[in-house]
Amino acid sequence: MDEEKAKVCFVTTGATAPFTDLIKAVFKTEAVDALQKAGYTHMLVQYGTAKDVFEQSSLNALRHMDGNTPRKPIRIEGIDFKQGLKDEFKLARTSNGLVISHAGSGSILEALRYDVPLIVVPNDRLLHNHQAELAKAMAASNYLLEGNTDNLAPSIAYSESFKMKKAQFPPITSGKHRETEGLEAIMDAELGFQD
């Protein structure tokens, strides 16, 4: 049997609030089809407290994929929560895969350090949230892709070609502030450390 190369899509829903809409969104038939089309072999989902939602929707997705012959069904695994997702981000990175994440700034910052294509999905149900703003601004700078819970398939399909145009993060220079001084220079100036 030919050993197929693994390609991992890691989905993280965050630690604070359960984000069931995202779990449902990644297992929608269109999204799963898009993942299969892009050659994904594994899905790893950090579902938080919403284990029942994860189990139900992943089951539906598996049933759907069974009918999707001749494609091999994607293997689905779940974790509830763990401190630090370093290994998971690395797995997505080394398998030339993808991360789909909630829009918390901590996850965004961590995922981007691993230089992995990232689709960020803001949680519309959170009140007073600035997550959508952040996701939009980051997407405008080509650091990541902004997705939504209604339809993730286009973002997944686009993520393949996005790998080529993804901007480096953290940026070395930015726009008109090309001669920008880093935080260290500002701290030095405040303390009077001068060259």
Partner: peptide, 24 residues
């Protein structure tokens, strides 16, 4: 003494917010 923001949209808030790019 120094007030730094990380998005250009906030630059100049209160007449003193400084923008030096993303710092994180």
């Amino acid at each position: 003494d120094r007030f730094l923001v990380q998005w250009e949209q906030l630059e100049g808030k209160g007449g003193r917010a400084e923008f030096h790019g993303i710092l994180v």
